[in-house]
Every structure is written in C-alpha cells, then in structure tokens.
C-alpha cells in the first residue's frame, strides 16, 4: 500500500475513533444527567455522534478495512487512533454501580470537542478525498446543535455560582494538559497535508482557540499539553476499560448475528 493510502486510512481511523469514544462516554451518561430534560437532549447528541462514527467506519469498510462492527469492537487499544482526552472516564465510579460522574467534565469536554470537530469538519469539506468531503458536508449541519448545546451549558455555568465556576475552571485546566494530540494527525501528518486531505492542524488550533476565547473567560495562557499521543496508538487504561465494556457482548461470539 502506498503512503498516501495509509495516511488516508489513518486519518479516517482518527475521525471514527474520536466519535466512537465520545459517544461511548455519552452512552454511559444516559439516565444520569443532572436534569431529566438535559439527559434526553444529551442522548440525541450521543446517538448522532455514534452515527458519525459509523459513517467514518463505513468509509474504512469501503476501502477494504473490514466490517464496521469489527472495526469498532475488535481493534486493540494499540490500533486505536482517538485523542487521549476523549477516552478519559466520566469521573469516578462505574456507570452501572456508582456513577460519580462530573457534569463539569461533560460540559468542558463537550464544548471543547464539538468546537474542535466543527473546525475539523469544515476543513474536511475541502478534502481531496471526495467521499470524506461528502461525509463532512453531511455531518456538519447536524453537528451544529451539539456545539450549541454544550456552549450554552458552558456559558451558563461560567456565569453562575462560585462552586460551578471553580469546577469548570478545574476541568479546563485538566483539558489543557491532556488535549494536545487533538491537533496532531499522527505519523502520516505530512502526507495528509501534502495530499490535501486536511488542513494544517496548527491552523485548526488557531480557529479552535478563537472560538473558545469568545466563550470562555480566562483560558489558560500556556500551550496545550498531552499525557500521551493517542494518534500514535498510545493510550491510558481508561481506554482498555472502555473497550472491554463496549465489546463485552460482541466478544462472546464475534461471528454470531446479534
């Protein structure tokens, strides 16, 4: 396989795995949000996002990478390309036993990720890989609501009680030290840029920061940092646990019809 093709596959895995992990974390939240109406709306966002992951996996399937469910359920952590911050667990505890999940994390991650996804999708609408450009154009209109939802939560909580402001601030600090690999397109980055598959991540980061600055007061002034680089297959144990959960039933018989 030539380098161009490998680079494209890698980019598609990044897009698919990002959305899969975000929607997996969202699915753990289902039924547990601080307000029933907010729970229902959040779940729509989660479902849409998983639908986007399916879309990206399907592009991979069309390129001969295998069935979408194999791609979502069977690949070991080493092969996963999602950014580290997206696999981070929702807080403490297990979703089905003691879900000490933190809404501040949901809001900060939701807002940061959807802002990121928007600038990335806009870039992808001009991708030289036509099916990816078409995919980005289809997802963008639906994704607007996701950003609007988390932005509203972000705005309101920031203007609210000292406790809420502090919780949000802490989660922003945390995000700052764990999300640099969002703006890394992995080992084939140069090929991706040369081939016109996507825009320079530094440019996307500027656009991302500009949007964040319009909403968040006192963004950290230091540069983004990372724990590990998910784009290179480096991951945390949070991902191992997530993969075990999301493939638990599937793995009991990967060839059965479910």
């Amino acid at each position: 396989m030539d380098k161009r093709n490998e680079a494209l596959l890698d980019l598609l895995y990044q897009c698919a795995d990002d959305d899969l992990l975000v929607s997996f974390r969202g699915s753990e939240w289902l039924g547990l949000a601080p307000h029933v109406e907010a729970d229902v709306a959040f779940s729509s966002i989660t479902q849409n996002t998983m639908g986007h992951a399916v879309y990206f996996y399907r592009l991979l399937q069309e390129l001969g990478e295998g069935d979408v469910d194999v791609l979502a359920h069977e690949r070991p952590a080493l092969k996963r390309r999602n950014a580290i911050y997206l696999e981070k667990r929702n807080g403490d505890g297990q979703y089905d036993e003691d879900p000490y999940f933190d809404w501040a994390l949901a809001v900060v991650r939701g807002y940061f990720y959807e802002t990121y996804k928007r600038v990335k999708l806009i870039s992808l609408t001009a991708s030289s890989y036509e099916p990816l450009a078409i995919c980005a154009k289809r997802i963008l209109p639906e994704q607007r609501y996701h950003l609007a939802y988390w932005k509203e939560w972000m705005k309101q909580l920031q203007q609210s009680s000292p406790i809420a402001r502090e919780k949000i601030r802490t989660r922003i600090e945390e995000a700052w030290s764990q999300s640099l690999d969002l703006f890394d397109f992995g080992q084939y980055e140069q090929t991706l840029l040369n081939e016109g598959y996507i825009t320079d991540p530094l440019e996307l980061k500027q656009q991302w920061l500009a949007e964040l600055q319009s909403t968040v007061k006192d963004l950290p002034s230091r540069p983004l940092e990372q724990l590990k680089n998910g784009r290179n297959g480096e991951h945390t144990t949070d991902l191992d646990v997530a993969l075990a959960t999301l493939s638990e039933v599937y793995q009991t018989d990967p060839v059965a019809q479910w």
Binding site: L30, G31, S43, T46, Q47, M50, D96, L246, V249
Partner: peptide
C-alpha cells in the same frame, strides 16, 4: 426503568444495537 436496560447500552453487541437501545432508553427518560 431506564437503569436496568441502560446497563446494556454501552455493551450492546453492534453499533446498530447500541444506537437502537440508546434511542429506546432515551425514550424511557422522555
């Protein structure tokens, strides 16, 4: 009632099943 079914939402055995059971449990919350 969302809780017992929800335990299986992240674990559902395919992406289609995950989406469908999520939509279903969302309806229960609704």
């Amino acid at each position: 009632g969302a809780l017992p079914e929800k335990e299986w939402v992240p674990k559902a055995p395919s992406l289609e099943r995950k989406l469908a059971i999520m939509a279903k449990v969302q309806d229960e919350m609704g």
